[in-house]
Design a protein around this nucleic acid. Sequence first.
RNA 1: GGUGGCAUAGCUCAGUUGGUUAGAGCGACGGAAUCAUAAUCCGUAGGUCCGGGGUUCGAGUCCCUGUGCCACUACCA
Length: 684
Amino acid sequence: MNQEKILVTSALPYANGPIHFGHIAGAYLPADIFTRYKRMTGADIVYVSGTDEHGFAITIGAQAEGHSPQEHVDKYNKVISNIFKQFNISFDNFSRTSMPHHHKLAQQFFTQIRNNGYISKKTTDQLFCEKCNMFLADRYVYGTCPDCDAENARGDECGACGSWIDPLKLKQPHCKVCNATPTVKQTTHWFLELGKFSKDLTAWLDTKTDWKPNVKNFISKMIENGLEGRAITRDMDWGVKVPLSEAEAKRLYVWFDAPIGYVSATMEWAEKIGQPDKWKDYWYDKNTQLVHFIGKDNLPFHCVVWPAMIMGQDEDFILPSDVPANEFYNLEGKPFSKSSGWYVDIEDFFKTYNTDSIRYCIAAGAPETKDADFTWKDFQGRNNSELADILGNFINRFLKFSANYFENKVPEYCNPSNADTKTLESIKELSQTISQHYSHFHVRKAAFTIMELARVGNRYFDEKAPWKSRKTNIQDCACTINTCIQIGKALAIISYPIIPTTAQKIWDMLGLPDKIENNNWTEALQTPVATGHQLGNAEVLFAKIEDATIAKEEEKLHSMVAKDKADNAKEKTEKTNLITFDQFLSVKMQVGEVTQAEAVKKSKKLLKLQVNLGQKSIQIVSGIKESYQPQDIIGKKVIVVSNLKPAKLMGIESQGMLLAANDNNKLSLITVDNPEISTGSEVS
RNA sequence: GGUGGCAUAGCUCAGUUGGUUAGAGCGACGGAAUCAUAAUCCGUAGGUCCGGGGUUCGAGUCCCUGUGCCACUACCA
């Protein structure tokens, strides 16, 4: 049989913050499980990923945290790598898109695709923020919706009326970063003409008969609806330089260079293992299966843009064989969101819980067909009643039994009963079933199958009741324990892709030599543990998680949200303190000339003024006596709020108010710049 | 607004091209057992398959429609 050759990738995490369970559940754990399984079956498999380190969001994130983009991505590359280590994700190489060879390769893609006529140049108007010195992407602009006049509409879509917005038509646009008003500027960009690939993409997609239906439907529809050119350059100074002299100030759009990271990560891997050309064995070999694990949000890029890019350049690179996209994994019903306090701190998490518990929990509830949830209760349940009670306890009960009654050696298997052979048959069946699940990325079903086998073990142990046969029929008892040991070995093997550390522990407890992953899947499953083999020492595989511990976690989560809610409420009241433009317009201000002024008797602060507004004159009582004497103020042109509801001060009616700046009770009247301006002129 | 998806037991989810009486795990309840991390095993209860209409001998499954939720909507990483 030909050896399978597989290249597995996981979506490149964006180096702008830590990743969470959602990412793990969508793109990393399923890929790791698949990879570990395939490695054991003897496949020639390489698994790569790396941080995606370019784009606007990086520069903005860096600015927000007060360091350079380079420092920013260095920091998050480390943070993210560490998280993967804790989850025991077994990359062959975890790279970064800031590597020089990546830049070179991305530029090569651009140049070749352009030379082949798939990239065009267009000049368009775009909003530009002078203060931030950058063109604003749609989502970095907000303003008033031109259709429904709702405020705080995003540059691309109005949250209130749902209509699509051309950011150039947005009323009162503001830069989301600095709040300044952007100007309209012309800019030139290069567009990847995706439409030219429609036919080839459709033909390619037609060959993918075994893809997940949700993935395939989504992409076919997208192509059917017509593909438009997509800008693949940006005005910025962080990222891969556009290899054109006329585009000095431009960088490649991060989504253009990111998937190329899969190739460059493989190149780096080859370099690291001392065979710099080895990457070509995969990328140029039509027999290599290229499998991209991603979340559903990345589908358009991996199934349309990226294949089009490969088709458009000159190298004979392979196209994706499968793109098992997962849905989203939420936290207790809502998306993970660090900014709103709705998240699980991963560092804290691993101080209390172990890697395999969470790997199993995520696998068993993976978002394969629809969005799924992580809940603390579910986590506790998976750990306690499945891993500890069903799996852990089964291993423990037969090992203790062997230690107590068979000198910790594998007892003899002879004169098997129906129950014994049937059980051995079950091992075979279930391990074949789980192979299917692993091959087809059905992580959820695979997790279930592990428990199924452990259940078979428990049932069998109960049915055979070796604690009884030990006294009545020692041969039958030996046979039972032997069979349990075979189940234990099978459990170690089939659970390895999901819970590798535990699988190794079981392996060691069975006294089996070598690392479990160095064994061949099929061979190891077919080889029973020999009679007389010395077993290792039993130890507890999974500790129970107490109710109180989980209650604490839930409380912590909800208190973070409560705090966030309070913050939001505060922000909201601050927002309601803001007045709308219309409210502002309702204040009528005019230029008035002070014609008379006299002190109000018995008052320290008040002056009584007559102010000429052109058409009419009004009386204003104003508290400026400490700063202005009556004779100083006569003849001055000042700004007056003329539609104020009249009020009586010290018994004297005041029909408006003067505007003055107040600095520590020192007042300075606001006057007009040009003294010739006619009285009564409106201020706006 | 457009496109796509989802809605099944208290909870989390399976249900292949339409085909007997709609399944599993957890939780609940009852029982058995004592080798084991008080773990296990057996049994019981629980569903108008989101509402309405249609096609069909037959619909959880196909079509239409209503409602609710989710994603995408392309210079958004």
